[in-house]
Amino acid sequence: MRYIARKLGFYAVALWGALTVNFLLPRMLPGNPVDILVAKLSARGPVTDELRDSLELLLGGAPDQGILEQYWVYLVGIFTGNLGISITYYPVPVVEIIGQALPWTLVMIGIGTLLAFIVGVALGMLAGWKRGSWLDNLVPVTTMFQAVPYFWLALVLLYILSVGLGAFPVSGGYNYNVAQPGFTWDFVGTAIYHGTLPALTIVISSFGGWLLGMRNMMVSTLSEDYIVTAEAKGLRPMRIMTAYAARNAVLPSVAGFAISLGFVVSGSIVTEQVFSYPGIGSTLLQAVNNSDYALMQGLFLVITLAVLGANLIVDLLYGVIDPRTRANG
C-alpha cells in the first residue's frame, strides 16, 4: 500500500512539472495566435479593432494579465476542462476536438502496440527457450522490418493489401455510409475493419525489438541457478519456461513497454497520416500547420497525461511481477 501511495505522490509531482512546462513553452514561442487569426479573417474582409480585442479576450491572451495570473487561470482551466478554443476548427472548444480524436488513437495504436509487445515477447520466449531452433531465424527477419522506415513499410502494405488486393480500406477510421459513430455493431465492425491494417503495420514494424530483447534475456536467464534447481525438481518444461525463466526474463521488456506505451499517443502522427486516420496524430499535425496554440497545448497535455498514465500503470504492474521492487516501500 505504501508502495502505491509513494508512486502516486511521485506522479502527482511529475504531473505538476509537466503542466508547468506545458504552460511556459508556448509563451516562449515567437508569434501570436491573435495575429494569425486576424490574418485568416482578414482574407474574408476588413478586421476592426473591436473584433481584434474580442478575439484576444476569447483566446485568453489578455495582455494586461501578469504571467502568474495567466498561470493560475491556466491551471483552473485544466481542472475545469476548459482548454480554450481552437482556431483551426473555430469556434469548437479544444476539449471537444480532443474528445473526438483520442478514442481512435488510443484504441487502434494502443491495441497495435500491445499486440506487438505480446507477440514479440511470446515469440522471444519460445526462441530463447529453444535456442538454435528455426525460431531463431525470425530474429533477422523481424529486425529488418524494424529497420525499414515505418512510413515506407506502411505505404507498401497499404499499396499491396488495400490498393492491390482490396483486402482493407485505403483510408479513414470508419465507413460513413455504413454507420455513424456510436456503440452499434455496425459501427464497431467498420471501425475494426478500418483499423486492422494500420494496427498491423505497427505490430509488424515493432515486434522484432521485443522479440530480440526477450530472446536474449531468456537465454541469459536460462543459465541461472534457479533454472537448474527447477529442472532438478522435475518440474514440467512448460512450468519452468513460464514461471521460472520467462517471469524473470520479461522484467526489462516490461520497463521498455512503459516507455513505448507513452509514445502511443504522440507516435501516431505518421501512422495516422499514411492511413488518413482520424486521431490525435493527424489533429496535432493540423494544429501545428495552423499555429493553433490552444489546440497544440491541449494535445501536449493529453500526450503528457498519456505518458504519465502509462508509466504509472506499468510501474504498478512491475510491483506485481517483481516483488523486489516492493521491498523498500
Binding site: 541461472e224 541457478d225 534457479y226 537448474v228 534447481t229 527447477a230 529442472e231 532438478a232 525438481k233 522435475g234 518440474l235 512450468r239 514461471a243 521460472y244 517471469r247 524473470n248 522484467l251 511481477i321 517483481d322 516483488p323 523486489r324
Partner: peptide
Amino acid sequence: YRWDKVSMVFQGAMNALNPVISIEKQLGDI
C-alpha cells in the same frame, strides 16, 4: 525420478531460488 528419489541442494544459496515467486509457490510446485 528427479526430486522424488534424488533431490539436490545447490552451491549458490543466493541464486538457487527463483527471485520473483514466493517460497510457498516454489515449495508448492514440487
